[in-house]
Design a protein around this nucleic acid. Structure first.
Length: 496
RNA sequence: GCCCCCAUCGUCUAGUGGCCCAGGACGGGGCCCUCUCAAGGCCCAAACAGCGGUUCGAGUCCGCUUGGGGGCACCA
């Protein structure tokens, strides 16, 4: 599907951590821009002074970079439609809201927050719709001007048409119609002089020549308002695409704050930064997030970013809410890890060893990677599988050394036999060691599981490890024999 | 309370009136491979919320019911 170049924007507010929903919205924006040869823009919607979180913008930018969703215009990269931070566009909003006032499509309102709260409570008591009662809607313009001149605090409200209906077109849902009398005279400009989202986003989308607006379906309620604002200015509307929201794994509502915190304990999170720390890779995360709400086709599942760019199609976006399925994220992550080049994977898991203070040498690491690659679900799984490679001494649970269906004395006996065989080999490489070990197993009348299981624990210190012979090849003969000697000691001590 | 949106296997989805006794993927179960754990291969169970229409024909169109979700700020 190749269309005209799209200008799209990801417009988060720096009020907290970047979460999954944001990541997916950003991804869809990116995909459409790249597919059509258009531009992907980052705009920071920071007009709410009270909710501003220092560092949030940086986290957003870092998150985007980590995900590989590079943007063409934004606060840190510039562009000819800037500035890209709404706090730097205050004058623009002021001019535009004035235009609306002059047009008679917006008006100053002097109601105090206290009065509004009182009105709201009364409405709730009467069980009627909570809305602005229009107290200032028909103030005499002269009088209003005088009150403003005298410095009286006020906001600017949009004068919503009071009769008829408004129909706005959502790309994936079709036309959405509401009765205008149900619509509120929303605040466009706050008393602190900053615009609300309703005004700022509409103005910016127009001025920045945005062609497609991807946003959460949480905006559906104010969709008619926004359409009315755009129309009041006489502007052309962008294509609106309201994305389904993400539900908690049970499918019952959005994740609560508490549930978000709980998820971390299970090794999951809805925050991009956490997911990164937890060992998820951008390739896996993008793939998983993309497919929540987008039907990519009949059979395709594992997709790379370039493949997604090629296949992305607005027609296959899904309007229904989607329950988060972290198990499926595991699958996508593992699948993409397996697709990584060996040196790439090595570079990505190295920090996890360093984080635990292991001394990692790159040559060894590179030899280990092919052994553990298909075993990793998340990057930090490298630790349980391969940390032992970098340990000076092993901590062995003696009971693990005792081979299945044998006692400690018998196991010690087997261990000595293994030692004797390995000792006489030129080295313990896979090619050299396997056949003799199989032969030994057969001679002893034991199973491979019994013999190699014992050897595994002796060499790696654990019951589960990467393939034994390949591992021994990396460790080397002398260390293998040393550890085997140690294992024999342990078993002999157990037997007395 | 009011408004809006949504509705196919447990989950994510394919399906745009006949190609569907509904396809794929995750998860689950079984088998194979196998030195552990994985990965991989094969197989199985599993869904059109209900009821009315429209039509020669409906998962697909319409209505209602039910269920679910979102919203009703000088937050975004």
């Amino acid at each position: 599907m190749i269309d005209k170049p799209a200008r799209v924007r990801f417009a988060p507010s720096p009020t907290g951590h970047m979460h999954l929903g944001s990541a997916r919205t950003a991804l869809y924006n990116y995909l459409l821009a790249r597919q059509t040869g258009g531009q992907f823009i980052l705009r920071i919607e920071d007009t709410d002074q009270k909710r501003y979180v220092p560092g949030a913008e940086k986290e957003l930018i870092d998150g985007l970079h980590w995900l590989g969703l590079d943007y063409d215009e934004g606060p840190d990269v510039g562009g000819s439609f800037g500035p890209y931070r709404q706090t730097e566009r205050r004058e623009t909003y002021r001019e535009h809201v004035q235009k609306l006032v002059d047009l008679g499509k917006a008006y100053p309102c002097f109601c105090t927050p206290e009065r509004l709260e009182k009105v709201r409570q009364e409405q709730q008591q009467q069980k009627i719709r909570t809305h602005y009662d229009g107290f200032c809607r028909n103030l005499d313009p002269q009088e209003a001007a005088a009150r403003i001149a005298s410095g009286e605090k006020h906001v600017i409200r949009f004068k919503m048409p009071s009769e008829g209906t408004t129909t706005a077109l959502d790309y994936i849902r079709g036309p959405i119609t509401v009765e205008n009398k149900l619509l509120d005279d929303s605040v466009l400009m706050k008393s602190d002089g900053w615009p609300t989202y309703h005004l700022a986003a509409m103005v910016d989308d127009h001025l920045m020549e945005i062609t497609h607006v991807f946003r959460s379906s949480e905006w559906l309620g104010t969709f008619p308002l926004h359409a009315n604002i755009v129309r009041a200015f006489g502007w052309e509307e962008p294509i609106w695409i309201h994305l389904s929201i993400f539900l908690k794994p049970s499918g019952k509502g959005k994740m609560s704050k508490r549930e978000k915190a709980e998820a971390i304990k299970d090794g999951y999170s809805i925050f991009v930064k956490d997911l990164q720390d937890l060992g998820f890779i951008p390739e896996g995360l993008n793939n998983w997030a993309a497919l929540m709400g987008w039907g990519a086709g009949e059979t395709e599942d594992i997709l790379t970013l370039p493949e997604m760019i090629e296949k992305f199609d607005l027609h296959h976006l899904n309007p229904s809410p989607a329950a988060i399925n972290f198990t499926k994220l595991d699958y996508f992550n593992g699948a993409h890890i397996r697709m990584l080049a060996l040196d790439d994977l090595a570079a990505r898991i190295k920090p996890y060893f360093l984080r635990e203070n292991y001394k990692v040498d790159d040559a060894t690491l590179l030899k280990i990677v092919p052994l553990i690659r298909e075993r990793l679900v998340t990057l930090d799984d490298c630790l349980p599988f391969a940390a032992w490679f970098f340990k000076e001494t092993l901590t062995i649970n003696p009971a693990d050394l005792v081979a299945k269906n044998l006692d400690s004395a018998q196991s010690a006996q087997v261990a000595r036999k293994i030692y004797a065989v390995l000792e006489n080999l030129p080295n313990v490489s896979h090619a050299v060691a396997e056949a003799p070990m199989r032969a030994l197993t057969e001679n002893l009348g034991l199973s491979l599981g019994q013999v190699l299981g014992l050897l595994r624990v002796a060499v790696t210190g654990q019951m589960v490890s990467p393939p034994l012979f390949e591992s021994m090849e990396i460790v080397g003969k002398s260390l293998v024999l040393e550890r085997l000697r140690n294992a024999i000691d342990i078993l002999e001590k157990m037997s007395v």
